[in-house]
Simulated scan of single mutants.
Amino acid sequence: MNITLIAGARPNFMKVAPIIHAMDEANSRNDGLFRYRLIHTGQHYDKIMSDTFFEELNIPHPDANLGCGGGSQAEQTAAIMVAFEKELQAHPADLVMVVGDVTSTMACSIVARKLNTKVAHVEAGIRSFDLSMPEEINRMVTDSITDVFFTTSEWAGENLRKSGVKDEQIHFTGNVMIDTLLANRHKFTRPEIWDRAGLEEGGYLVMTLHRPANVDEKEKFARFLEAIIASSGDLPLIFPVHPRTAKIIRELDVALPERFHMIEPLGYLEFNYLVERARAVLTDSGGITEEATVMGVPCMTLRDNTERPETVELGTNELIGTDPANIAPAFERLLAGQWKSGRIPDKWDGKAAGRIVAGLEAMVSSIPATP
C-alpha cells in the first residue's frame, strides 16, 4: 500500500511519527507492506523545528516541503491545494493520511478526493461546535469527505455517527499525541528558566495563551493577566510567549511582578519538563490539555468550549471560560488542594499508532494498489 502522510505544523509531525514507526515495524514483519511518503506543506514556519527537533524526538524528515506558508486563510488553502495536487499526481498513492485539524488537513483531503484517492483522518470526529474557530471548519470539511476515521475517544466516534458515518468506517484507536508523549517522557529536559527562576517541583505555574479572542482584545487580555497575577499567590508564572504576544503585554497597563517570567517558546522536551512538574497549567490550547491530563497536572482552560471533552469529563482539565472573573474561584480550589484528580482516557496508553496500522493492514486487501 502506497501512503502519503501530511503534516502542516510541528504538532502534526509528533502525530505522524509514531504512525511511521508502527508502519516500519509492520514492514519488518510483512516485507514492505507499506510504502510511505511524508509531505510537509510548509503551512507553519517554526524555528524550533530544526534538525535537532527531528533527531531528539526520533521524527523522520519530510520527503518534500511544499513551502506554502504565509497569506490569508484562503490564500494558504489555495496554495496548499495547488502544490499538493502536483505532488500527488507525481507520486500517486492508495491512501492519503491527514492528522489533526490545521488548514493542510482540509486542503490535502479535498485534493485527494478530487483525484479519486481515499482519505484517512487521524483525530477524526473531534468537535468544539464553535464555528468561529477555523480549526472547526477544517474538521467538519475533512470528515465530510473522509473514507477511514481513526478516533481518539468515544465522544469523537459518536459525533461521526450523528453525522451519518457508518460504524465500519470508524476505528477507535486512541491518541497518537500521547504515543509521542510517553515515548519521550524519559527524555524531558530541564530548561534554563528552571535554575534562573529558582523553580521547585509543584511550586510554579505554566501559562500558554495564543488564541486571538484572548490576546488580541487588549482590555480583556489585561484583565486576564491581572486576575491570574492577583489569584496565584506567590507562585512563579512561566509564560513561553510568542514575540508578538510579548509586545502586546508590554503595551498593556499591567504591573508584572518579578515572579512573572516571559520566556522564548520552548522545544517539546523542555516545555513538557515544565508541565510535568508544575502546580498547574493555564492554557487555551487543546493539545496541552491532553498532555496535562496524562501527566496528572491540574489544567485551567481559558475557553468557553473544547473539542476534547474527555479531558474535562475524565481528566484534570476544567473549562474556566473567557470571563476573567472566573479565574479567582478556580485558583481558590487549586491552592486549597481541591482540584479533581482525574484519570487517563481509554486507549491513551502509547499504543494508538499500532492500532492505526493494524487497521491499515486490514485495509490492504480491499484497496487496489497503485502501479
Rank of each mutant, 00 (worst) to 15 (best):
L5M: 12
A7D: 07
N12Y: 02
F13W: 10
P18Y: 03
N30C: 07
R35E: 13
R35H: 15
H44S: 00
H44Y: 01
T52M: 11
L57P: 04
H61S: 13
P62I: 01
D63K: 06
A64N: 06
G69R: 08
T77R: 00
H91M: 12
D94N: 13
A107S: 08
R113E: 13
N116F: 03
A120T: 13
E123G: 08
G125Y: 00
N138A: 05
D147K: 14
A156D: 01
L160G: 00
H171K: 11
M177G: 11
I178E: 07
L181I: 06
L182T: 10
A183L: 13
F188C: 04
W194N: 07
R196E: 15
E201S: 09
L205S: 03
V206S: 08
A213S: 08
A213Q: 03
N214W: 01
D216F: 14
D216T: 12
K218I: 15
A222N: 01
G233F: 06
P236D: 13
V241Q: 01
V241C: 04
A246S: 15
L252Q: 05
P265F: 09
F271T: 09
A278D: 09
T283E: 02
T283M: 05
E291M: 08
E291V: 10
P298Y: 03
P298Q: 05
M300Q: 09
L302M: 11
P309G: 07
E310M: 13
L319C: 00
D323W: 01
A328G: 14
P329T: 05
A330Q: 11
A336W: 09
G337K: 05
Q338F: 10
R343P: 15
W348G: 03
A362G: 13
M363K: 07
P368S: 06
T370I: 09
